[in-house]
């Protein structure tokens, strides 16, 4: 297993590098100019030229690529054009926020999705199954930015107006008074802020997982060994959760690997809507401003996270199904 993971990790290096190289050239060949970040019409071309020189953009593309590659291998992501500070500092601030959101959503997606899927499979053709199917389809086909706005409208805006007990904050990651709160209140405050974005991000994906789990469960539940398990008098609970669920999880784990990139790209929308100061926001701003070093670093990071996510999914196969070995 260890050797396999190592092999996969080494194999991922050219992949990630290729992705980063591709992004470098696409980005640099796209129209637009980082110096135009200061594109007030009053700026004479000489000032723009000077800014370009200060940013190192006056050099040929090939040279810039080699320089970037060299710096990159030494862990130097350079300075953000827009913020004038090391890209590494920006990532250090934003990455934990995105990971917090993504991790919370991931847990929600799978817990919610698998639970609903199993319930539906067990109660196939019941009214609850039908209703849940429709609800799942409803959320599955909903754009996350719309869902986010609607949730905000209801649970932040209207809840506040109508004086509900649990009006949630509409924006941000912490309260303005966060620094003055007690430790316990701080945790609560962060959770409050996390609910709406995490739910927005996970509902859409959870609906998909529920559909998958239901289908898989229905297939597995018809297998002979399930009948055997029931025949030998095991409680239904054990049959469903131990024998059936475990076997129907394998395709769902594949989804885990596939969903990670979806989660990160979904975070881009959700972070903008809920003004969550994470990587998604950073990458959007950076693209608009042609802040090359930031775009490069963030997309590289996303590529790495995706590769690692797929790797984890592969490792989880072995956990779910002992027959799968990587030797």
């Amino acid at each position: 297993m260890g050797a396999y993971l190592l092999r996969r990790l080494l194999g991922a290096i050219p992949l990630v590098l290729g992705v980063a190289t591709l992004i470098f050239f696409v980005l640099n060949l796209a129209p637009g100019d980082p110096a135009a970040l200061f594109a007030n019409p009053n700026v004479p071309p000489e000032v723009i030229e000077q800014i370009r020189r200060n940013l190192g953009l006056d050099q040929p593309l090939g040279i810039r690529y080699l320089k970037w590659l060299g710096a990159f291998f030494t862990g130097n992501f350079g300075y953000s054009f827009a913020q004038g500070r090391p890209v590494l500092d920006i990532l250090k601030e934003a990455l934990p926020n995105t990971l917090e959101l993504a991790a919370a959503s991931l847990v929600l997606v799978f817990v919610l999705g698998v639970a609903i899927g199993v319930f539906q499979a067990v109660h196939q053709h019941s009214a609850a199954d039908g209703i849940l199917s429709v609800v799942a389809l409803f959320f599955y086909s909903m754009p996350s930015f719309w869902l986010g706005l609607m949730l905000m409208l209801l649970f932040a805006l209207k809840a506040h107006e109508w004086g509900w007990l649990f009006a949630l904050p509409a924006t941000g990651i912490t309260s303005i008074d966060y620094d003055y709160l007690s430790a316990g209140r701080k945790v609560l405050d962060r959770l409050e802020h996390l609910i709406l974005p995490a739910v927005t991000l996970s509902l859409v994906l959870a609906a998909g997982i529920a559909r998958y789990t239901r289908g898989q469960m229905l297939e597995v539940i018809r297998q002979d060994y399930i009948r055997t398990a029931r025949a030998k008098g095991l409680p239904e609970r054990t049959v469903v959760l131990k024998h059936a669920l475990r076997n129907s999880l394998i395709p769902v784990i594949t989804l885990f690997g596939l969903y990670l990139p979806l989660l990160f790209s979904g975070a881009v929308f959700v972070e903008v809507i809920f003004s969550w100061p994470g990587m998604g926001r950073i990458i959007v701003d950076a693209i608009f401003q042609r802040d090359y070093p930031v775009v490069m670093a963030t997309s590289f990071l996303f590529a790495v996270l995706t590769v690692v996510g797929n790797l984890i999914a592969d490792a989880l196969y072995a956990v779910a199904d002992p027959r799968i070995r990587y030797d």
Binding site: M152, H160, E161, P277
Partner: peptide, 20 residues
């Protein structure tokens, strides 16, 4: 004075109405 960055206009309005 606390300046909060809220990129989405609808969210800005939501924050204003809900007291954020």
């Amino acid at each position: 004075l606390v300046f909060r960055v809220i990129p989405e206009p609808a969210t800005q309005m939501a924050a204003l109405v809900s007291g954020g």
